[in-house]
Design a protein around this nucleic acid. Structure first.
Lengths: 142, 142
DNA sequence: ATAGCTGCAAATGCTTTGCAAGGCC
DNA sequence: GGCCTTGCAAAGCATTTGCAGCTAT
């Protein structure tokens, strides 16, 4: 579990500025939702809905833009578990995931709860950027 | 590396029939391309182009349908490495992948070349279906 | 003031679907 | 013949983009 962030309005503004992002109303609200309550896994659609329900007017396009800007700034990490939908994780440390293929829920697996041993050499002319383990699960049969 | 299949026209027809799929001209051609030359990683778009170049008239919709039918029949396996594009692998045995995020090339990592140790328990009410390791690589800096 | 953001709507890319025509058994 | 398949074109999603107007500094 990642250390909870200081989620005061000013702290969030400071964090955004530190990334070279202007603290706008929309970014502040989205950051508040994302970093205000422990580790989270969101989709653009889901975060957008949440913001709307929370009373903040944000366009879906801005949610997409913001998620990518946050990812680029290192505040988020993209998790690829579904071809057709992008997931973002507020836990940016090295770790892995359970993915429920029925409910489409993501759950963290702490980095040290899995050991990947004996990684073979990367193909000629390439270097390893990241190692991602996805454990697909389904509802247990009754 | 998987054992190469018998790729004679009749053998392919037999394989299709065994899966409950009628051996049509399109399926035979696609199966020929897929299983005719060792392990392959394809996208619908790519396989479609290949078929067209090879002189077989197949619609993209049929390529999609066929890829899914083959996957359901256990002849193919879907590999999720990119949110936005589906990849299919002719190697259906348990193994993992290198994915070049620049060239979008996939390469197999033999199942026994990586050991995933100490898998934590699946979340309440679920059972593990599959464990997939994706090693993302980029062109080495010069 | 000005460079950066936002929102809308249109465009894009991949994939699926509906339905009429064609092909396998 | 009857049912499965195909092909086309249209529809469907998730995502990106262009551009006019708004906002933080």
């Amino acid at each position: 579990m990642t250390m909870p962030y200081d989620t005061s309005a000013e702290a969030i503004r400071e964090r955004l500025r530190a990334c070279g992002l202007r603290p706008t109303r929309q970014r502040e609200e989205l950051a508040g939702l994302l970093f205000g309550s422990g580790d989270r896994h969101v989709t653009a659609e889901g975060l957008h809905r949440e913001a709307m329900v929370g009373g903040t007017q944000v366009s879906l396009a801005t949610v997409y833009n913001t998620l990518h800007q946050f990812t680029q700034a290192g505040l988020l990490r993209e998790v690829v578990v579904d071809s057709g939908r992008a997931y973002f994780d507020t836990n940016t440390s090295r770790h892995h995931h359970f993915f429920n293929t029925h409910t489409h829920e993501l759950a963290d697996i702490h980095g040290d709860a899995i050991s990947v041993g004996r990684l073979p050499e990367a193909p000629e002319g390439t270097r390893v950027e990241d190692v991602e383990v996805v454990v697909r699960v389904t509802p247990a049969r009754v």
